[in-house]
């Protein structure tokens, strides 16, 4: 069980067939102060690449795309009252949704933590 990352800065943590999804610490730093998060509805069927959530900073709205296909089984309702959790703890309490994945091979082409770290360092150059 370990974090996987997309090139669009989403993270996925797969436990059994349930994937928890959020955005990386690097992404929250780029966005700045998060003021609103729109999470999906429990029961939504999401396809890989679909819009899963929207994160709004003071400046702009950013879509978060789902790295996996499946059914939304849980959403982080605490973000409604405390959107800055995304800034403070992006990798854990700032998660957006949990998806019961249809096909765990969706994660195969994602980066592991070390590869993502190198990827992000490349972006800052």
């Amino acid at each position: 069980m370990s974090y996987k990352f997309t090139e669009d800065h989403e993270w996925v943590l797969l436990e059994g067939d349930v994937a928890t999804i959020g955005i990386s610490d690097y992404a929250q730093g780029q966005l700045g102060d998060v003021v609103y998060v729109e999470v999906p509805t429990v029961g939504d069927e999401i396809a890989k690449g679909d819009e899963l959530a929207v994160v709004e900073s003071v400046k702009a709205a950013s879509e978060v795309y789902s790295p996996v296909s499946g059914e939304v089984i849980d959403v982080n309702t605490e973000l409604e009252g405390a959107p800055t959790m995304v800034n403070e703890d992006a990798m854990e309490s700032g998660w957006f949704a949990r998806i019961k994945v249809t096909n765990s091979s969706d994660l195969d082409d994602l980066m592991d933590e070390a590869t993502y770290k190198t990827f992000v360092e490349g972006l800052d150059e």
């Binding site: 669009d8 800065h9 989403e10 955005i23 992404a27 780029q30 966005l31 994160v55 702009a60 709205a61 950013s62 879509e63 978060v64 795309y65 972006l123």
Partner: peptide, 9 residues
Amino acid sequence: MSATRVVLM
């Protein structure tokens, strides 16, 4: 995430 990419590029 879409907007982040715009900023980076």
